[in-house]
């Protein structure tokens, strides 16, 4: 078994020579600044430390660094523990799961069963999101997906 694993990782290391889609994850904190003229400015700052109740933007940038187009790209992101999904900010509407990735669908189609009662799932119930890119990603092309979430 160990040999097999080693073989697989060797394959993974070798893979970038043919195709290499890279992901880069960042978390930013969304802060609202009250301007002197009464307006409000929403600003994103690096989230190094965040207080409960604050909103963060989880952003995943992707890029095809290979010389071949990459197809059937599926970017999957479990909503981190203690974060509650608020909304999607980039990448279009993803598929959602409220059961840890067992079942997927549009948020409006998902249900939560709790204490014998069934109710419509809310954004805060979401455990996983995943985006499927309909077009192949050309060599050198890049993009990003992002969602906002509130720290419990």
């Amino acid at each position: 078994m160990k040999h097999l694993l080693l073989g697989l990782s060797a394959l993974a290391l070798a893979a970038p020579a043919f195709a290499d889609v890279r992901l880069s994850s960042t978390v930013q904190e969304e802060i609202v600044i009250q301007k002197p003229n009464g307006g409000r400015e929403v600003k994103l700052i690096p989230a190094d430390s965040v207080a409960p109740g604050d909103t963060v933007i989880v952003r995943v940038a992707y890029a095809n660094e290979s010389e071949k187009p990459a197809s059937d790209i599926v970017i999957s992101n479990p909503v981190p523990e203690h974060l509650s999904l608020v909304d999607i900010r980039e990448g279009g509407e993803p598929a959602y799961s409220v059961d840890g990735g067992e079942t997927w669908g549009a948020l409006s189609a998902l249900k939560i069963v709790s204490g014998g009662e069934t109710r419509a799932a809310k954004a805060a119930d979401v455990t996983n999101v995943r985006w499927r890119l309909t077009q192949p990603l050309a060599p050198g092309a890049s993009g990003a997906v992002a969602f906002s979430a509130r720290l419990d």
């Binding site: 697989l8 394959l11 993974a12 893979a15 043919f18 195709a19 290499d20 889609v21 890279r22 992901l23 880069s24 994850s25 978390v27 965040v50 989880v58 995943v60 992707y62 290979s66 071949k68 187009p69 990459a70 197809s71 059937d72 790209i73 599926v74 970017i75 999957s76 992101n77 479990p78 981190p80 523990e81 203690h82 974060l83 990603l137 720290l151």
Partner: peptide, 21 residues
């Protein structure tokens, strides 16, 4: 609190190993 995303994709119709962020 930590976030890691995963991407799966195919090249030339061949499924590639998942890549983590």
């Amino acid at each position: 609190i930590s976030n890691t995303a995963t991407v799966g994709y195919t090249v030339g119709g061949v499924q590639q190993p998942d890549v983590n962020s």
